[in-house]
């Protein structure tokens, strides 16, 4: 099986045997690992002035960097952050990655039209609208869903090189969700459900990500039927076995390695946490994707991430479970 096939079978919660799939929403540490700036951190101020040849060199280099990252760390999936991010360049990047690596990797990108936690500057206005003009927010949501689906359709028509979308609107703080259950039902659920269903009809998989304490809204998220739920943030008190009890065995679970601890903990604390996450994730024998509870973020020590991957190589194998 290719990495892509293993990843897809895992999203379908089918048993795969062998190594548990891994990936990261973003692996920002490309400068340390490869001496190259991560594509999402680049600013091409003169992109439109470049010759095709120059653009092509940049595009090829970015595509190769994604592949090299996946190869080096055993990732089964590549999350692309197309830069530039218009449809033409998204398609170009996908074509290059497929040309260079065939169908070896599952490829995904952002695609969440639902509201997330607003920033500090807009939070008050957003909250007022939630209570005084929810219909306006919902009108905007409907437009955002249509735009997301339009992009998905166009990529589908152009060869369907993308496998899925990561829906990355954050809904939760560490302590509790931003949205109450009622607000979540009114403002998020209909649109999350719709976008996931429509993506599925087009043959795309959906991984729903959110940081924080998701437990109060987890059932509602699960009822929207994503293929996987990502992050399972221990900093938000989220426990993998508890999540499994609520969402059942048919939604894959991804994440749960405490990425804050990777930065601040001792080697031993990190090792213990990684092993715990592997043990709890692999318990069902299927439907588990090993990764951090957010991403390999800027500022994380590369050696800590590499330590996590070494532990995964040793213990993250269904055929030789050591727990």
């Amino acid at each position: 099986m290719t990495n892509r096939e293993r990843f897809i079978k895992t999203l379908k919660c089918e048993p795969i045997g062998g190594q548990v799939p891994t990936f990261e929403l973003v692996f920002f540490l490309t400068m340390e690992a490869f001496g190259k700036v991560h594509p999402s951190q680049r600013y091409y101020s003169q992109w439109n002035q470049m010759s095709y040849a120059e653009k092509s060199l940049h595009m090829n280099e970015m595509a190769q960097l994604y592949i090299d990252t996946a190869k080096k760390y055993g990732h089964s999936a590549i999350f692309v952050h197309p830069n530039p991010g218009d449809l033409e360049h998204i398609q170009w990047l996908l074509e290059l990655i497929r040309e260079k690596s065939g169908n070896e990797y599952f490829i995904m990108m952002h695609g969440d039209p639902t509201w997330g936690i607003p920033d500090g500057q807009t939070m008050m206005d957003f909250s007022i609208q939630m209570y005084e003009e929810p219909e306006k927010l919902n009108e905007e949501s409907a437009k955002r869903v249509e735009n997301a689906l339009e992009t998905a359709r166009k990529l589908d028509e152009r060869g369907h090189l993308l496998d899925g979308f990561a829906l990355c609107s954050d809904y939760c703080f560490n302590v509790n969700p931003f949205f109450s259950e009622d607000a979540f039902d009114e403002l998020i659920v209909p649109y999350l459900k719709e976008v996931i269903a429509e993506y599925r009809k087009m043959g795309y998989y959906s991984i729903k990500h959110t940081d924080g304490n998701i437990m109060p809204i987890l059932k509602q998220m699960a009822d929207c039927k994503p293929d996987a739920i990502h992050s399972l943030d221990p900093q938000g008190g989220v426990s993998l076995p508890e999540v499994r009890k609520i969402v059942g065995p048919d939604i894959a679970l991804a994440g749960n390695v405490n990425c804050g601890l990777l930065q601040t903990g001792t080697d031993e604390e990190c090792r213990t946490d990684v092993l715990r996450s592997l043990r709890e994730g692999m318990e069902n024998g299927r439907g588990y994707i090993f990764c951090t509870s957010n991403c390999a973020y800027t500022g994380l020590q590369l050696n800590r991430y590499e330590m996590m991957i070494e532990i995964w190589k040793e213990y993250g194998n269904y055929d030789r479970m050591k727990f």
Partner: peptide, 14 residues
């Protein structure tokens, strides 16, 4: 006690 959430707090603060 998780009986109200941030938007409700913001509305009350306003």
């Amino acid at each position: 006690n998780n009986q109200v959430f941030v938007p409700e707090v913001l509305m009350a603060a306003r």
